[in-house]
Nucleic acid binder design. Structure first.
Ligand SMILES: [Mn+2]
Ligand SMILES: [Mn+2]
Ligand SMILES: [Zn+2]
Ligand SMILES: [Zn+2]
Lengths: 139, 139
DNA sequence: CTAACTTTGCAATAGCATTGCATCACAATT
DNA sequence: AATTGTGATGCAATGCTATTGCAAAGTTAG
C-alpha cells in the first residue's frame, strides 16, 4: 500500500512527492543502514543531489537518522523511536561488520548511562561497535 | 628535554627523525585532540603530507589514536594506555563540545560493557558524546 | 664509499559533502 | 482560468579531507 507510505510522510510533516515516496519505500525495504551511494544505485535512475536532499529533509523531520560508522561514508536508516523535527533520540547502538562492511542499527541495544567528569554536560551520544555481525559469524 | 621525547619514540619502535620529534613535542602540548589542519597550522612551515604520514606512523606504532568525532574531520591524540603496534585499547570515551568545537579524550571515563544481540562479536568500540565541555559550562 | 632502505616533499587523484542557481510542480488566490 | 508564491528538483560547480605515486634527500649497514 502506497497509502501507508504516504501517511508516514504526512505524519512527519513531509510533503509526499513522488520521489519521496520512492525513497521511503526503498528505505523501508532495507535491513541495514545505507549510504547515499547505495540509495542511488538501489533506486531507478534519479538525481544524486535530489536524493541527498531528500535524506536531509527526512532527517530534519525526524524520519531517518544518520550514522557515522567510522568508514567516512555517512549511512542512513529509518528512525524507530518517536523522533520529531526537534529531537532525535537514537540512543541505540550501531554496529559495523568488519567482514561484510554493513552497518546495522541495534534498536534493542541501548547506550547505557555514562557518568561524565565534573561540569561536562551531555547532549547526544553515539556508540559504534565494530566486529563481526550475526550473519557473518559461524556457528 | 628532547631526550624524553626521543625516548618515547624509540620505545614505540619509531625512528626519531627531526620531524617526528617536532610533531610529538607538539602533540604533547595539546590538551585536546587535534586535526591534521591544526597540526599543520600549529607547527612551523612543513609539508602537510609528511605530517599526515607522521600521524599514520604514530598510529600504527601505538603512539597516537585517531578519533572520529562526527564532524567529518579525523582528530588525533596521544595514547594514554599501553598501546602497541598490535593493539589499541582506547576504551575511553571521547567528547565533542558543541560550543567550542573541541574534541576531548576522557581517559578516566571508560566505555561500559555492552551485551550485544546473539552472534554479534565485538572487536572495537567507539563512543562519542556531544555536549558542552567543562570550560564552556557556566558555574 | 656503496648499496639498501626509509623518510620527506611535491603533484595528482579520489570521494564525499555541500552550495548556487535556474527550472519545474503545485497549490492558493484573485 | 490566469496569476503568483512556495517548495522541489536537476544540473553544474565547488570545497574539503583523505590517500596514493613518484622522485629526491637522508640514513644505516656492510
Ligand atoms: Mn540507528
Ligand atoms: Mn582518546
Ligand atoms: Zn557481516
Ligand atoms: Zn567547550
Amino acid at each position: 500500500m502506497t497509502k501507508d507510505i504516504e501517511q508516514r510522510l504526512k505524519s512527519k510533516n513531509i510533503k509526499p512527492t513522488a520521489m519521496r515516496l520512492l525513497v521511503l519505500d526503498f528505505l523501508m525495504q532495507q535491513n541495514t543502514a545505507i549510504s547515499l551511494n547505495d540509495l542511488e544505485k538501489g533506486m531507478g535512475p534519479s538525481d544524486r543531489i535530489t536524493l541527498y536532499r531528500t535524506l536531509k529533509t527526512f532527517e530534519e523531520k525526524g524520519l531517518v537518522h544518520h550514522i557515522e560508522d567510522g568508514t567516512g561514508t555517512t549511512k542512513y536508516a529509518l528512525c524507530m523511536e518517536e523522533c520529531d523535527d526537534h529531537h532525535h533520540h537514537d540512543l541505540h547502538v550501531h554496529f559495523y561488520c568488519n567482514n561484510c562492511k554493513e552497518t546495522f542499527c541495534l534498536p534493542n541495544t541501548k547506550i547505557p548511562q555514562i557518568s561524565l567528569p565534573e561540569k561536562f554536560r551531555s547532549e547526544e551520544m553515539n556508540l559504534v561497535i565494530k566486529g563481526v555481525c550475526d550473519r557473518c559469524n559461524p556457528g
